[in-house]
Nucleic acid binder design. Structure first.
Length: 646
DNA sequence: GTTTCTTCAGACCC
DNA sequence: CGGGTCTGAAGAAA
């Protein structure tokens, strides 16, 4: 080991920032371990002087252990400090949680491991498995969160309207706690340095506790997550992830470069009121910089959406390249860390989000070229449907008449909802507990109060023309039309495709799959003529059937909380012809790994053989991400989307 | 193992 | 609609 590896405080007065007068000039001295450790010597304020001595002592003890610099740290083994690569053949699923049903007595929640691991060479198959685990866990979290909100509202309702004004419980944190108790948090058995398997750059979250559940960032509020020194192999704290969400005024976020402020020194109102100290997360950041250990960066910012007012975006890995002590805007000393994004990663989710926002808000003139139409629906939809093509001259979607709602054959048994004498509900103030329409849906509405699908059903009965509830009723989600701005775009890989300029929360209604519905007889004639049709019954959403299934959370009283039963399995046997009239949906690509699901819905009539085909987001979908549906055919077979819309 | 402290939340109120 | 205020849970620190 050479002295160049010994940490010095040079970084604390980087050349780019003038050394503030508050900071003592570090002067190297030789200590008993023959390792040079800088000791401040000036007549600085005593608190800072003490602080520097403390830090110096920390480093002295750390370096007494003769640490080497590891440029290619893969695993810091807690026993040996050895660097090990986690090989591909090792169990690709680190989530070894005991089955909740096997747990009889309430065990102590699993503690976070202190073993620092970097997971590499997972391989495509491993990544797919990890992704599936992450997906499922997120589904449970979201379903549980929504369940808790609905449960609370139900209690309020039962107790009478007077108590409904009480403060709402934190479903986001309660859901996380319950999952923690049931060992459903991910990546607790290893402390992961670098990317979390199954979590991709651009992934969107809505709550800090969601990040905890994923193992992306273990702190519920704090911005720096780190392994504490007393539990690390070399006695030094190591930072693994940071949240950038504007909590400190001295942050300077330039995208690929972030000047990140350390923590501490703020008063109760969040104002910088004293000097920060090189301890805790601040020291961990410095140590991660020294060892070249990358940190995950999650950005959080305001973004109005249906479930919260914020979003958190995973922006990938950054390296800490510099750190120094500076005078903050408040006049108090703060630690600063220069983070630089590591190359070779996909575009940051934050950049995509911002870009999508500019597409929506900027005047038409400053949008990128390639926009052929700013609304191919000609205002038939509630939100514009853009048409974008910057790779060739194809303008095909312009040449079709846009149909906002599917057309069903005349002459078939066709009843307006309510015409059968059953009538609609009488909920003049909107539908609530015990409403007739809730009964039609197995005693539970299909949507939560944000208008998101709670779980898939064979068919959903929305309130219809015969119902007395207002159009704003929670059970009229798909009738309200498009909620997000969609864009039909041209790509080399998939031809025409569809993406959203807004974040689509899991369960969000996207649009109807529109065409001219044909009976089997009508369809057979058309097929003979060579036209290709889409068969709604073939759409596959099998992967998402477990959506909303909380049996892993409520294993014991599953009897008490059975999924509602839905008597009607619709005998859907019609074809959708999109060769002449169509909407945005037919441009959605086919994928067996789809992010959009098909849900049958009845609202303007009650012929169960001809439900409307409604599309919902199957997971949180970031803006500009291509939507995909499982058309129920294998990739090499005929693809309706490719055949019809290309 | 326990208790206390800190924290780039989140909801609600005005 | 934004700041003040209240509650809070995880994890670090004591």
């Amino acid at each position: 080991m050479t002295t160049s590896h010994i940490p010095s405080f040079n970084h604390m007065s980087s050349s780019s920032s003038p050394t503030p007068p508050l900071i003592p000039k570090p002067e190297p001295v030789t200590d008993s371990t023959d390792l040079q450790t800088p000791i401040p010597t000036s007549s600085s304020p005593p608190n800072l002087y003490t602080e520097f001595n403390n830090v110096a002592e920390t480093f002295r003890s750390a370096f007494a252990q003769r640490l080497k610099r590891h440029d290619d740290v893969t695993v810091l083994n807690s026993l040996t400090g050895a660097i090990v690569t986690v090989p591909e053949e090792q169990d690709p699923v680190p989530v070894s949680v005991p089955s909740p049903s096997l747990v009889t007595r309430k065990p102590k929640p699993q503690e976070r491991s202190s073993e620092l691991v970097r997971i590499t060479d997972v391989g495509p198959e491993g990544e797919r498995q990890f992704r599936e685990v992450v997906r499922k866990t997120r589904m449970i979290y979201d379903s549980l969160r929504i369940f808790l909100i609905l449960e609370e509202l139900r209690e309020d309702f039962a107790m009478g309207s007077g108590s409904s004004s009480r403060r709402r419980g934190r479903a986001d944190s309660k859901a996380a706690s319950m999952m923690k108790e049931r060992f459903l948090w991910l990546n607790r058995d290893k402390r992961i340095v670098g990317s979390i398997p199954g979590v991709q750059v651009g992934d969107i979250f809505f709550f800090r506790l969601e990040l905890c559940v994923m193992g992306l960032h273990g702190q519920t509020q704090a911005g720096i997550d780190y392994l504490i020194g007393s539990r690390s192999s070399n006695g030094e704290p190591i930072a693994t992830s940071v949240i950038v969400s504007g909590g400190y005024e001295d942050d300077d976020d330039r995208g690929d470069v972030i000047i990140y402020t350390g923590h501490g020194g703020q008063d109760k109102l969040g104002r910088q009121a004293e000097h920060q100290k090189l301890e805790g997360g601040n020291l961990a950041m410095e140590r991660s910089m020294y060892y070249g250990i990358e940190v995950r960066v999650v950005r959080g910012f305001k973004y109005e959406n249906s479930v919260s007012s914020k979003v958190y975006v995973y922006d990938g890995l950054f390296r800490i390249v510099d750190s120094w002590f500076d005078v903050g805007k408040s006049g108090f000393g703060v630690f600063k860390f220069r983070l630089e994004r590591i190359g070779g990663q996909v575009e940051m989710g934050t950049s995509v989000l911002k870009f999508a926002k500019t597409l929506k808000t900027n005047p038409l003139s400053v949008r990128p070229s390639g926009y052929i139409s700013f609304d191919i629906s000609n205002r038939k939809e509630k939100a514009p449907v853009y048409l974008f093509n910057d790779i060739d001259d194809d303008r095909e979607p312009l040449y079709y008449e846009y149909l906002a709602s599917a057309s069903f054959p005349r002459g078939i048994l066709f009843q307006r909802s309510g015409d059968d004498g059953a009538g609609g509900c009488d909920c003049i103030n909107g539908c609530g507990s015990g409403c007739l329409c809730e009964m039609k849906n197995g005693g539970q509405f299909a949507y939560d109060y944000s208008g998101n699908l709670i779980r898939m059903r064979p068919v959903i009965h929305e309130c219809g023309p015969a119902c007395k509830c207002p159009p704003s009723c929670r059970n009229r989600v798909t009738q309200k039309g498009l909620r997000s701005s969609l864009e039909v775009f041209r790509s080399v890989e998939t031809g025409w495709g569809v993406r959203s300029l807004d974040i689509l929360h899991a369960g969000a209604f996207i649009c109807e799959y529109v065409g001219v519905a044909l009976t089997r007889e009508q369809a057979s004639i058309l097929t003979m003529n060579g036209d290709t049709l889409v068969y709604p019954a073939r759409f596959s959403s099998a992967r998402w059937k477990a959506w909303g299934d909380l049996s892993e959370v409520f294993p014991d009283d599953y009897e008490r909380r059975p999924p509602p039963s839905y008597p009607q399995i619709p005998p859907v046997d019609f074809a959708m012809d999109v060769s002449k009239l169509r909407n945005v949906a037919c441009y959605i690509s086919h994928s067996t790994d789809s992010n959009v699901i098909v849900q049958f819905v009845l609202h303007d009539h009650n012929n169960i053989m001809f439900p409307r085909v409604m599309l919902f987001a199957a997971e949180n979908i970031p803006p500009m991400t291509e939507l995909s549906l499982d058309y129920g055919v294998s990739d090499d077979e005929w693809s309706p989307k490719l055949a019809i819309c290309n």
